[in-house]
């Protein structure tokens, strides 16, 4: 009771900015990766390794392109076996299952049903997906309400909206469990997962960022004469 893991990272977590739900606050800018990495230096060596393993399984953008599905699934299964926190195992599994649904939808659009023994997905629903392959929501529409909407967006080719739908769904799942945790490693990992979602989402708004930057420059330079600008008073 005295030296619980649930209070180890009170300083770290309180030094990180609050993360509002996606797009709720128009002027919100997520903390930078540098800021997050600086805070994560407070993690113990063991927890830093755990965080790196979770990131390697969940975030694929930094992985080499030649890495195949089988290698990634082996890595994910290894993490699910070895991660000591049951809560984090569940969180990682849920995210991977969400991606499994998307992989199945894409394969169905390409008419490429997985063969027996093929590495194509992970989690508790792979068999059920194969059993209900021709059902739009794989027979799970009553459990995962977003599946029908995702199928519709994929068929219409609206990939940006599909990406946003998935991010909102991932956020909703993380938000649901947020209040169950205190100041331990689980809470830190949960924060980083949520930050990754927001970071990706707000990076999609680069046009808005350019417009905002230009307006800020205009405001700052309002009425100022630039030294390299020719004087307009001809003569």
């Amino acid at each position: 009771m005295i030296l619980e893991d649930s209070t180890r990272y009170a300083l770290l977590l309180c030094s990180l900015p609050y993360l509002p739900p996606p797009l709720r606050e128009e002027r919100f800018i997520p903390p930078s990766r540098i800021q997050i990495n600086k805070a994560l230096k407070l993690l113990s060596v063991e927890d830093t390794t755990r965080m790196q393993r979770i990131n390697a399984v969940l975030h694929w953008s930094h992985l080499p392109i030649e890495r195949d599905d089988a290698a990634m699934m082996v890595e994910a299964e290894k993490l699910l076996l070895e991660e000591p926190s049951a809560f984090l195992r569940e969180m990682v599994l849920e995210r991977l299952e969400l991606r499994t649904f998307i992989a199945a939808m894409r394969r169905r659009e390409l008419n490429c049903m997985p063969q027996a023994g093929e590495y194509w997905g992970i989690g508790r629903y792979t068999r059920r997906i194969l059993m209900h392959w021709h059902d739009p929501a794989f027979g799970l529409g009553h459990v995962f309400g977003w599946l029908n909407e995702a199928v519709r967006l994929l068929r219409n080719g609206n990939t940006l909206m599909l990406d946003r739908l998935l991010m909102h769904e991932s956020w909703r799942r993380l938000q649901r469990v947020e209040d169950c945790h205190n100041f331990g490693f689980d809470a830190v990992a949960l924060y980083v997962m949520r930050w990754n979602i927001l970071d990706r989402l707000y990076r999609q708004r680069e046009d808005a960022a350019v417009i905002r930057f230009k307006s800020m420059v205009t405001d700052a330079l309002n009425g100022q004469q630039l030294i390299f600008e020719p004087e307009s008073t001809g003569g």
Partner: peptide, 16 residues
Amino acid sequence: IGCAVAGQAAIGAMLE
């Protein structure tokens, strides 16, 4: 213990 945990949170909040 109580003051240490709350104190760490206070220091973290001061950084932010």
